[in-house]
């Protein structure tokens, strides 16, 4: 493997596209210095090459995660792709290289900088998705329930299946303002789609009445002699408040 050439790989921003970058790096026997889908500045970089997304190549790499590392590695890489880290592609790339070298043992290398950072980030993603299972608030517009969130990580792919299972007969939409993605569920099925803007009709009075009932409950359930705003804030950080019906 020649180390002199450290090109920048550009790909289409999909997981398949990323896996193709891994494939190409082995095919071309080179190690990229950056893998990115943000083709602003980097396009001008001297040594940038556009990696075409080839489904077969992606599939080969995906299968190799199971065969050469462990089955968990597949799930892990799928989740790692959702984390909020500017270096996520290179972290994943290095993780996969280490996995090919050490096999399943790589999953135990918690104190290694690459592996540790990636595992911690995935844990953070899972924690955030779990928080949102509770913090999502639906407002009912006619027959559709709508919720907006502003997550750090790309939590929608983890969140949607939970609500799909919970409300099979309902129609709902969860809008991720950070990544401009929406999960749209109808009784026939769920789709994830990108969505630039969401404009909502005014909230009806009958719906407002439920918002009031909920605020009333949330206020009344607290025991005054135990008031502890700091503890409340620790469990429910301010960044979630924007979308919480019950918070100011």
């Amino acid at each position: 493997m020649t180390l002199e050439r450290r090109p920048v790989y550009l790909y289409d921003g999909t997981l398949e596209g990323f896996l193709c970058c891994v494939y190409e790096s082995y095919a071309r026997k080179e190690i990229p210095c950056e893998i990115t889908s943000e083709n602003g500045q980097t396009l001008l970089a001297e040594d940038a090459s556009w990696i075409i997304t080839d489904w077969d190549h992606a599939q080969k790499v995906y299968v190799s995660l199971d065969r050469k590392i462990t089955m968990e590695a597949q799930d892990f890489i799928r989740k790692a792709f959702l984390i909020d880290d500017p270096d996520r592609e290179m972290l994943m790339y290095r993780f996969i290289r280490m996995g090919y070298r050490y096999g399943r043992r790589v999953m135990d290398m918690l104190t290694d900088d690459t592996v540790g950072r990636l595992i911690r980030a995935v844990r953070g993603l899972e924690r955030e998705a779990h928080s949102y299972m509770g913090f999502v608030r639906f407002t009912v517009y006619d027959q559709v329930m709508v919720s907006c969130i502003r997550p750090k990580n790309r939590v929608l792919p983890l969140l949607a299946p939970h609500f799909e299972d919970r409300f099979p007969e309902e129609s709902f939409l969860i809008y991720d303002r950070t990544y401009r993605m929406a999960a749209v569920h109808k009784p026939e099925g769920t789709v994830l789609t990108s969505l630039d803007k969401l404009v909502l009709p005014p909230i009806e009075d009958s719906e407002r009445a439920y918002h009031e009932l909920w605020r009333c409950f949330q206020r009344t359930i607290a025991i005054e002699s135990r008031t502890n705003p700091r503890c409340q804030m620790n469990h429910m950080p301010k960044r979630y408040w924007e979308e919480l019906t019950e918070m100011p």
Partner: peptide
């Protein structure tokens, strides 16, 4: 957990 009351519970 769906919310936290003013007493942190």
């Amino acid at each position: 957990c769906h919310s936290f009351a003013a007493d942190g519970r």
